[in-house]
Design a protein around this nucleic acid. Structure first.
Lengths: 239, 239
DNA sequence: TAGATTGTTAATCGATTAACAATC
DNA sequence: TAGATTGTTAATCGATTAACAATC
């Protein structure tokens, strides 16, 4: 159990590759479920939505799990990637902020099936306490510390309004959480060693809008609905 | 209204910069709301969570909107960025798939306030039709084409199960939508010219898990809960 | 062996960063 | 003018891609 790989040499996996490993894992799972035992880098790349050169390069950081002239054993590669990511084990997770998004996250079956277990739902609003969401009772936010300690929680999800997010993050970090998935539209400041990933719905839409605007080609052309070009007035709310 | 900039020269803005513009916009809005009229690149960079060199480089792709020795006029820069992104206008959006996540998205106030207007909520399940979500009635998915045409919808949001996603995307594209925000855990194939951005909750968690695993440093150390190292068995569901 | 496909190399491309000249 | 801060340059770093030698 100590050596994870026969040829253990402090592999450094580029961030861009790390971000794609879960995509490969999902593609391999799909292939496996449709009964496919073996695949080429070309086939797997297509299923994952990347090109095969990138796929092979990515996999090369993990080791040599393929067979030249043949391809990859789907089950074997799937396990190797799952182990590399760390989802062969079970990660206890807490979700803070049980509004609309918190509900959706709590009910998301994809967490459970991919190595994550929601051990607690927390909310500062007493009105929400004891409500059952996806079979789990909503608890007071102040229970955070005891829950983190009891379950050894390392990953926290923030689904609160923007204004509450930094305080929640501070409390999470103080409680021992060192990885945070942040859905609140706020910039979080955390100590070194704590990882924060951000999912921001309106930012994604704005990126699409930028490209969409350019497609309707540049300056000219039909702009949708309420064009307000030249009027220096934009209103953006806090949340 | 034809020339968007006095010195219009087909500016090419790098993707990485485009992805950060909405972050700057949000930071400027926050500064503006706290009554700040002027800021330096250092201050804005801190508010946006980047370093000031990157901020200035990013802004330089838009033009010269600052004053040396002084800094940036918050309102002016905010408007310039909003215009560049395209959120000085109103973008009609449809959301398809009104399950938990669809509900959360429909209720998300951040869309409306940032230049997006949800004009329709669609679902293939008749059980959900006519239900009011955030004041909007859920309509049959088959109404997609007429709604897209009526409102000039260019951006669609997919919040369906994975299996339905490709079909929804195909229909969206056929109806004239050319930007898609996909929340379904599926790889979408779309024609050239159509933009797809993907938000995948479990992939974000898996990336965090990877880093978390390495923090508990490498092979040794206390691994949380149900360690299953060496057992080549992972189960990942389709959704 | 001949055909197929991996794993790796090297070239290219794009993003980040530090430093500083320009200039308010 | 002196101090401050932008906008830009150039160096560095990391990611992508094509091509192909290794090898099943």
């Amino acid at each position: 159990m100590s050596a994870r790989n026969s040829s253990e040499t402090a592999r450094v996996i580029p961030e861009a590759t790390v971000a794609r490993l879960p995509v490969y894992l999902r593609a391999l799972t799909a292939l496996s479920e449709s009964g496919i035992r073996t695949c080429s880098s070309e086939e797997l790349a297509t299923a994952a939505g990347v090109n095969s050169a990138k796929l092979r390069k990515d996999l090369s950081y993990l080791g040599s799990y393929g067979t030249r002239g043949v391809g990859y054993d789907v089950e074997y590669l799937r396990y190797q990637i799952a182990r590399e990511i760390g989802v062969t084990q079970d990660w206890p997770v807490v979700i803070v902020g049980i509004g609309n998004l918190g509900h959706a996250l709590a009910n998301y079956s994809g967490f459970r099936s991919r190595g994550f277990r929601v051990v607690a739902l927390l909310d500062a609003d007493p009105e929400r306490h004891d409500e059952l969401v996806a079979g789990v009772a909503v608890q007071p936010f102040d229970d955070l510390e005891s829950i983190v300690e009891e379950h050894g929680v390392a990953i926290g999800v923030i689904a609160t309004p923007a204004l509450a997010a930094q305080n929640v993050a501070d409390r999470m970090v103080a409680a021992g959480i060192s990885s945070i998935l942040n859905f609140a539209p706020a910039v979080l400041t955390v100590p070194e060693g704590v990882d924060v990933r951000k999912v921001d719905l309106s930012i994604e839409l704005q990126i699409l809008a930028y490209h969409e605007q350019r497609k309707a080609h540049g300056a000219q052309g039909s702009l949708p609905d309420g064009v307000a070009d030249g009027v220096p007035e934009v209103t953006e709310a806090a949340l």
